[in-house]
Design a protein around this nucleic acid. Structure first.
Lengths: 227, 227
DNA sequence: TCCAATCTTGATATTTTCTTGATGTCTTTG
DNA sequence: CAAAGACATCAAGAAAATATCAAGATTGGA
């Protein structure tokens, strides 16, 4: 659940940032920091975090304003931290798109439990990494490959290969890169595997396997997936 | 947003129920009540509310237990009300599947803002507790499995396995995921259990157990329930 | 205590996937 | 044009993964 999730902490207090960094990193999160609102917004745009922890009292612009600007382009789960306990503040933040609101001082245990709630919400569907090209579609989050709507059966190796191609769609992958990623570093010379498995993939995915339109050969270099 | 949303309030205190009924109805909600845990669970199964407000201190069974039983078959957003403010209680409730936790006394404004947050989350694909595929039907809220209308007897483990598959219908569950969820983290290597129990499930549920149409094998990866 | 249901374990059969080699085709270049 | 290198295709045997059957062990309730 928490494994590797990226968290962006936007807070001007050094102690809070330090405390959160140490505590969350100890629990397997990847923590990034911003000390001001505008910086936080641009960090969020770069990092694409899985979760934002946002303090309401910031030096440059109001936390509420940061939240509004974030919500113009992202629905990344956002938990508000604030010293203010008034109903009005909570209501304003929650209605502006916050997913939760904690009053300082807060307990780390509670914060982490509430972080887990937001991650749970994010699970279904939303992050469905869909790749489409021609008549084939790949849903990486469901490990589902379809061709003209019908499921295509791929072996573990075939699927690993296809996933790698998709993750680098449009770019050429060298023979060695592919062998290292899919089969492991000790297989980088086994180019024969590439022939066999690319042929199998084409057989299952291409309209006309002998005239590939999707899985392209770059002679002398490697292979490439049409973008 | 609040227009016509059905809310189920599970609380033994008459005053609280009265207060919430009047306040929420004034804001356009459709409010239903239950004064005890077991009653609340069956009401939830009948009403299919859009939101559940659940008190932790109930006369018959613990609020946490009510939440756990609800989560066996529904993901209906649930906000916990409690007199207890301890971190442990909050963490336990949130990790058991609660979407939010408010300490009594609470402000109506804050509660309603938090209700709006849950409704915002709930938009995509609310889960039904009735699962149907081919000639089998499963009612998770009544723990009832039927095939061509006739009840099918499943052992506790078989049922837990089937429930997990239904809750993730259409997506592949890896061997480890299944073993961890159904048998516990210390069983993740016991793949032999999977063979035995999947064979038993197929024997009881599939038309032709040797040509599964519902419970599909993904060799080298795991299993999947046809969507 | 005994019974009945369920869980656990092992032996064996079947299916799927991986690996390998043989052979054919295409492209480039001397 | 011929030859060499790179790539594609096919298929069979080996290995791994999965399915099946059934006998002991456990467990909870009558």
């Amino acid at each position: 659940m928490s494994s590797g999730a990226r968290v962006l902490v936007i807070d001007d207090e050094v102690q809070i940032r330090r405390f959160l960094r140490i505590s969350l990193e100890a629990n397997g999160y990847e923590v990034h920091e911003a000390a001001a609102g505008l910086d936080g917004i641009s960090r969020a745009a770069q990092l694409r975090p899985d979760l934002i922890i946002l303090d309401m009292g910031l030096p440059d612009i109001d936390g509420l304003e940061v939240l509004r600007r974030l919500r113009e382009w992202t629905t990344t789960p956002t938990i508000i931290l604030s010293v203010r306990d008034a109903d009005d503040d909570k209501v304003a933040a929650l209605d502006a798109g916050a997913d939760d609101y904690l009053t300082k001082p807060f307990s780390l245990e509670e914060l982490m439990a509430r972080m887990r709630v937001t991650q749970r919400h994010a699970l279904p569907g939303s992050q469905s990494h869909l790749f489409k090209a021609g008549d084939i579609a790949v849903d990486l989050s469901r490990r589902l490959v379809t061709r003209n709507g019908e499921a295509v059966k791929l072996t573990p190796t075939e699927y690993a290969l296809l996933r790698l191609l998709i993750q680098h769609a449009g770019r050429v992958l060298t023979h060695k890169q592919i062998l290292r990623e899919v089969w492991g570093p000790e297989y980088v010379e086994e180019t024969h595997y590439l022939r066999v498995y690319f042929a199998q993939l084409r057989q299952k995915l291409e309209e006309n396997p002998s005239l590939p339109a999707l899985i392209l050969t770059e002679p002398g270099v490697g292979y490439r997936l049409a973008a």
